[in-house]
Structures are given as structure tokens and as C-alpha cells.
């Protein structure tokens, strides 16, 4: 029997930066995730790479595991974040998981 996915969202204004929203659906793992806000990412088409890498991660992972994943993807793809940080994304994901 299929379990109903939970939905979560959280936001924060990054200090000295921009607004960051995370919306996600999950059970014991993240099945859908959107990172939204008025920040900048270079190259612009790289955000789905970060989102895609986080899908499938267990929701009970600690913030450092999410942070490491985001940093790995950013480094591998030469992604530059302006107005948000990998740390802020990881924290906001944990906030969105109730």
C-alpha cells in the first residue's frame, strides 16, 4: 500500500543575502524538492543539478550530510551561489522536514 507523502516548506532570509525557500515532499526519503528565491546561481541552469542530487536522500540525515552533498555537486559542476550558501540550503531543507 502506498504511503501518503508529507509536504514541508521553510524559508529564511540569508544574512547579508537573499530569500531562500525550500518546498519538498517526502516519506522516509525526499521524493520532490524545489529550491526557490531571489538569489543568483551561475550557471543558471545548474539549480536542477543540486535539487536532483538531494532527491532520494533520507530525511533523517543530519544537516552536515545535506551540506556535503550540496558542496559536492557545486564543486563538480563549477556552480557559484550568490546571495545564498550551501549551508543555508542544507539548514532550510532540515527546517522544511517536520
Amino acid at each position: 500500500m502506498m504511503t501518503q507523502l508529507k509536504e514541508g516548506e521553510a524559508q529564511q532570509k540569508v544574512q547579508g543575502g537573499k530569500l531562500l525557500f525550500v518546498k519538498l515532499r517526502y516519506d522516509d526519503k525526499i521524493s520532490e524538492l524545489r529550491i526557490l528565491g531571489d538569489f543568483f546561481i551561475y550557471p543558471e541552469n545548474a539549480l536542477p543539478k543540486i535539487e536532483g542530487a538531494l532527491i532520494g536522500m533520507r530525511v533523517d540525515e543530519n544537516v552536515h550530510t545535506f551540506l556535503k552533498k550540496i558542496c559536492d555537486v557545486a564543486r563538480r559542476n563549477g556552480i557559484e551561489l550568490i546571495g545564498i550558501t550551501p549551508d543555508a540550503i542544507a539548514q532550510t531543507i532540515k527546517m522544511a522536514i517536520k
Binding site: F21, R34, I35, L36, G37, D38, E44
Partner: peptide, 9 residues
């Protein structure tokens, strides 16, 4: 809207 924003939001 910015590239990473939601239109409906």
C-alpha cells in the same frame, strides 16, 4: 520574476 522564483508564489 527571477529565474528561481515561483510565479504563483
Amino acid at each position: 520574476i527571477g529565474h528561481f522564483q515561483s510565479m504563483l508564489d
